[in-house]
Structures are given as structure tokens and as C-alpha cells.
Simulated scan of single mutants.
Amino acid sequence: MDDPVTEHSAPVPPSVWRNPWHFLAFGFGSGTLPKAPGTWGSLVALPFVPLWQMLPDWGYWLMLGVTMLFGVWLCGKVANDLRVHDHEGIVWDEMVGMWITLWLVPEGWYWLLAGFLMFRLFDILKPWPIRWIDRQVHGGVGIMLDDVLAGVFAWLGMQGLVWLVG
């Protein structure tokens, strides 16, 4: 039996440019960039944050819930379509992780930068239990959950930073 294609050996599918679900899962095309697609997907999430910050706190929270649930479906669907467990170009999960990181954080470019760096740190290092979940939980839930947790860890770090500085 052939080994399934791993996330790092899978080519960028041309369907990203034809299929709206694939385009969305690939972060509006940012996941097709050849180096560090997760970083690019995280950057693409940043311009949305000022829009989310215009919502009341409960509205931002509701948006997070909707984008997480939608992400489970979206990432699972696109992974199944591509026949790749967690294609590295699927970056919707990084986008949601960034939005979690920046919930209840003050407005300002320096907060966006701090949140970006904090989220990338947790997403790359994957401290326990994030690494375990990344390896053991599959499908749309697995694709989303490690980045949601990295977002929660980064959110806790950002709240500490807000408390110290703000």
C-alpha cells in the first residue's frame, strides 16, 4: 500500500485558483507561497483584526466560534479533496489562530506585531499539548485544533503583555 502524501511533499494544487473553498482554505492564495505558508497565512489574517475589533467583545467571540466551526468543515473538506491529511498550504487554521490571539487586545499596529510574533512562536514550537494534538488528532478537527490551541496560548501571553504594559 502506498504511503499517503505528507503535508510537506504535496504540490500546490491548481484547484486553489478555481475552487472557492480551496482558495479560502489556502488563505486567499497566501498558502501557495513557496516558503513558510503558515507565516503568510498569519499575515493575511491581520487586516481583518481592525474589523473584528469594531465588533462588541461578544461579537468578536461569536465570530471566533463561527470561524472555528466553519474551519473544521472547510479544512477537512479541502484536505479530503486534495487527499492530503494537512497540506501545509491550508492556512485557514493559522488565520483563526491569529484572530484568537488578538481578541480583547488593544488596537494599534504594535499590538498586531506582538500578537503575530507570539502566535508564530507557539505555532512553530508547538509546546505540549499542541504537538501531541497535531500528531494524534486528524481530519478537520485536527487541522484546526493545534492552531486554535496555539492561538489560546498566544492569547494568554498577549493578555499578560496587555496587563504589564497597558
Rank of each mutant, 00 (worst) to 15 (best):
V78C: 08
E94G: 05
D86K: 01
F70G: 10
V96D: 09
V72C: 04
D57L: 13
G71V: 07
P37S: 10
G71A: 10
P56F: 15
M54V: 03
T39C: 03
G65R: 11
T39E: 05
V78F: 12
W61T: 01
G71S: 08
C75K: 07
G97T: 14
W52P: 01
W52T: 06
L69G: 05
F70C: 02
Y60A: 01
M63G: 02
C75I: 00
L64C: 06
V66W: 13
M54I: 03
V78E: 12
A45I: 08
A45G: 08
H87I: 00
D93W: 04
M63T: 12
H87A: 00
M54K: 15
V96Y: 12
T67W: 15
R83I: 00
V84K: 07
P56Q: 12
G71T: 07
G38Q: 03
P47D: 07
G65I: 13
P56R: 15
V66D: 06
Y60P: 00
I90F: 11
L46P: 03
K77C: 00
D81L: 05
P56C: 13
F70P: 00
W40V: 08
G65P: 03
M68W: 15
L74T: 04
I90D: 10
T67L: 12
N80K: 13
W61Y: 08
P47R: 11
D81P: 00
N80R: 12
F70I: 08
G89P: 01
G76E: 06
M63S: 03
V66N: 10
V78T: 11
L74F: 05
V44R: 10
V84L: 00
V91T: 13
D93K: 07
E88F: 03
G65E: 13
E88M: 04
V96H: 09
W40C: 04
P56W: 15
A79M: 05
N80W: 03
H87Q: 00
E94D: 13
M95V: 04
L46M: 06
L51G: 15
G41W: 12
